[in-house]
């Protein structure tokens, strides 16, 4: 199976730790990612609120490049936001002839003109769970994360809404109300997953700049719930949640106190650590919330 890799804008900027750790764990387990290096922004929430057709054209160009250049069978992205935009475009192209027509015309004008809504879109967490899975991780663990308590957080767009993720129709998707793929993968590293009610709650990241105080309140609710559950770190599969929960954490603590202080890491960083990759390669010093301190205290780095 040929897989196109769409990192998205965040992973080439502030979330580079997610980009690099994703590539490291993919390579370590034999997943060949063909990076769509001429990708453009998926349009995020802003395109779909501004112009319907543009909100399909931007993701479609990424898919067209993956198909036209690399002849891929699927495109995978580690970003919940990009995942949502690509799936939403696929749904529109398959269910709305008018949208499909204008997108294809656009692609013929500016790109390869090969994409017709016919490539599978996958989230890296889902792909890694299904193609690698907990058993293979368990067999590859060099440094068990035993003793590390992890709150496994998924964010909003990972398996929502079912109208576009087709959860329940596509057998490989995670459970949208009670996701567990990340829990299962991290358990395989030896880490302990804490009972945590806010696993699929919203961090407010979509309004991190537009409505800062509400966004900080939502983020604080997640961080403090994880901390109360006894977590040493919070692991996640989304760079936008990463921006809201990690980069914004100093501001969140200022408004809501120390109860919201908790190191945040990408799940790929923890998997990488368990299979013997170095903190440096995995960019574990990147997060503002400083996971290195607790990892050192636990003797894991």
């Amino acid at each position: 199976m040929k897989i196109g890799y769409f990192p998205g804008c965040s992973l080439k900027g502030m979330a580079r730790a997610y980009d690099e750790s994703t590539k490291i764990v993919a390579e370590s387990f034999g997943i060949d990612l063909l990076e769509v290096d001429d990708f453009n922004c998926c349009g995020a929430l802003e395109a779909k609120g501004s112009n319907e057709k543009l909100s399909y054209m931007l993701p479609a160009r990424v898919m067209d490049s993956a198909k036209g250049r690399f002849h891929v069978d699927a495109v995978v992205t580690p970003c919940n936001g990009c995942y949502h935009s690509l799936l939403r475009t696929n749904a529109a192209m398959n269910e709305n002839a008018d949208a499909k027509g204008s997108v294809i015309k656009f692609l013929k004008d500016v790109g390869y003109g090969t994409y017709e809504g016919d490539i599978d879109v996958r989230h890296f967490l889902e792909l890694f769970y299904n193609e690698v899975g907990p058993e293979k991780i368990k067999a590859s663990v060099k440094k068990s994360l035993k003793g590390l308590k992890v709150a496994s957080y998924y964010g909003c767009l990972y398996e929502r809404p079912k109208t576009i993720t087709k959860t329940g129709y596509k057998s490989k998707r995670d459970d949208s109300e009670n996701p567990h793929f990340q829990d299962d993968l991290l358990k395989a590293t030896g880490a302990e997953i804490v009972e945590f009610q806010a696993a699929a709650s919203c961090c407010g990241g979509a309004h991190a700049l537009q409505d800062e105080s509400l966004s900080a309140t939502l983020s604080a609710a997640i961080l403090s719930a994880a901390k109360e559950a006894g977590a040493d770190v919070l692991a996640l599969p989304c760079p936008l949640c990463g921006a809201a929960l990690d980069i914004k954490q100093p501001e969140i603590i200022k408004a809501h106190g120390e109860k919201a202080k908790l190191p945040v890491v990408y799940f790929t960083q923890l998997i990488g650590l368990s299979i013997g990759k170095s903190p440096k390669e995995l960019k574990l010093t990147d997060p503002i919330s400083n996971p290195m301190k607790v990892l050192k205290a636990k003797g894991l780095v």
Binding site: K12, C41, A44, A47, Q210
Partner: peptide, 20 residues
């Protein structure tokens, strides 16, 4: 929201990618 959408879409259309 309007301000952010305008800034965001302006940058996407002009450069193709977002610079945070």
């Amino acid at each position: 929201d309007e301000a952010f959408d305008e800034v965001f879409m302006g940058e996407v259309i002009e450069d193709g990618r977002i610079d945070e």
